[in-house]
Every structure is written in C-alpha cells, then in structure tokens.
C-alpha cells in the first residue's frame, strides 16, 4: 500500500438518536485527495456518519455523540469553530437545494457570508467555481436568472459550485445523483473525477456501479458498523467479509 496523507480520521465514534444506537465504534481513516465511497443498505448509518464530519447532526436535538473525529489531526467537536469547520468541509445534499435566488447570488452566497464584498473578487469566485463545476458555459448568459429555472442536473452542479466557492478542502456528498437522470449523473461523476485532484471527497451512494466507477476506497456500512473498509478494487473483487460480498452481489439489502 502506498502511504497517503490522512485527512480525516475517527476514533471509537458512536452516535445515538435518543435510544437508537446509530453508529457503533467507527474507526476509519480518510485519505487526502481521494474519493471515498460509503455504501450500505438504507438505514445503515452511512449518511449519519457523513453528517458527523461537518457536524450537521448538531441540528438534531436528540443526537448524542461520543468518540472523536479529527480533521488534520484537530478534533472536529472540540478544537474547531463550527463556522470554520464547515468552511473547510463543504456538503452537497441528496436533492439539489439551490437558494431561490439568481445563479450569481447562489454562488456568491458563501464568499459573501465569509466577508468578501468587493465586486471583482465575487465575480472572479463565481466564474471560477462555475468553471470548476463544469457549469460555466451553460449558465454564463443567465447569471442573473433564478437558479430554480435550471434543470435538476444543472441545479446539482450549481450546488457543487456553491460549495467550491467557499474553497473547502473536503467535499461531502450525500447521494448527490439519486434524484438525477443518467446523463446528469454521468456529468456529476466526471466532475467528481476532476475534483479529486484538489479536494478530498467522501460520497454516500446507493449505486454500486457508481461506487465502483468513481471511488478509490469504499467503506461498507451495516447496522451502524463499518463491516469492511478497503480499496474499492479489493472490496468489489475479493471482499474479505461474507456480508460485504452478499451485499455487493445483490444477495440482500
């Protein structure tokens, strides 16, 4: 195995929704500038795990978390200001959720709340982010139009561009293509492939082929535990655990 830098790591991470034990003793290491896929049946905790990484679970009052999450060796729950953390760890959601504003204002939203006011800097950030999200050519003539008028696939790439505008280091994606048609899905997958040159990407997906196509490493979640975490190649060709094999061959789940 080549020795890569570890961007995110967890140490005996446990999460409870009230009485429900949703994550059990999670110890994983996520490598920098790689795509890590999280797979597993519905309700296995993979989305929940993803949301512990940028503390989106904090919004749910009944959640209790023990154990540690580290980003660049600093404790996410103790050593980061939540604004600073979310600036560095961006998130793309399952359904495209652009703000009901113009395309331009959607992208400029992040830079603006983080204090950038100068028009030329905002213009620059908007163009750069849209280019990086492979959306610039499609929307450059309609920057002032409402983002809700874009197609679903364009909206999702807009949401990715909106995240990139904040210049994060990690991008979390929660089933980003599950609401999209196959062509839009392919575009997003190509985009993810480009993005991993600069960003560490963690993606939750229900689509086995997608995980196989785009990820470097894959973690298989079941009942709140990580059953197996290895290189994507190994997981899909010769998984160690019987349960992983059953799942990826479609025998259950």
């Amino acid at each position: 195995m080549e020795n890569n830098d570890i961007k995110i790591s967890t140490n005996s991470l446990e999460l409870f929704y009230g009485d429900i034990h949703a994550l059990k003793n999670i110890n994983v290491e996520i490598e920098e500038r790689k795509v890590t896929a999280l797979i597993g049946p519905s309700g296995c905790g993979k989305s929940t795990f993803l949301k512990t990484l940028n503390r989106m679970n904090d919004l749910i009052p009944s959640v209790r978390i023990t154990g540690d999450v580290y980003l660049d060796n600093l404790n996410v729950y103790k050593q980061y200001d939540i604004v600073e953390l979310r600036k560095r760890v961006g998130m793309v959601f399952q359904k495209p959720n652009p703000f009901p504003m113009s395309v331009y204002d959607n992208i400029a939203y992040g830079p603006r709340i983080h204090g950038i006011k100068a028009k030329n800097k905002l213009d620059e950030a908007v163009e750069k982010s849209l280019r990086n999200a492979a959306l610039w050519d499609e929307v450059k003539d309609r920057l002032k139009q409402n983002a809700l008028g874009l197609s679903g696939g364009q909206q999702q790439r807009l949401c990715i561009a909106r995240v990139l505008a904040v210049e994060p280091e990690v991008v979390l994606m929660d089933e980003p293509t599950s609401a999209l048609d196959p062509i839009s899905t392919l575009k997003i997958e190509d985009l993810i492939d480009d993005l991993k040159e600069k960003y560490t990407i963690v993606i939750v997906t229900h689509n086995m082929q997608q995980a196989g196509r785009i990820s470097d490493k894959t973690a298989f979640f079941l009942h709140g535990e990580v059953v197996e975490f290895d290189s994507t190649e190994k997981i899909f060709s010769m998984p160690t655990d019987k349960r992983t094999e059953d799942y990826i061959t479609g025998r259950f789940g």
Binding site: K87, G90, P100, G110, V163
Partner: peptide, 13 residues
C-alpha cells in the same frame, strides 16, 4: 428546510 441546511452547511451562522 433543505435551503436552511444548505446555508448552514456553507458555514453561515
């Protein structure tokens, strides 16, 4: 609520 989530996830207070 998804819009609110998006804003918070971008680091907005």
């Amino acid at each position: 609520p998804s819009i609110k989530e998006a804003s918070l996830a971008l680091g907005a207070t």
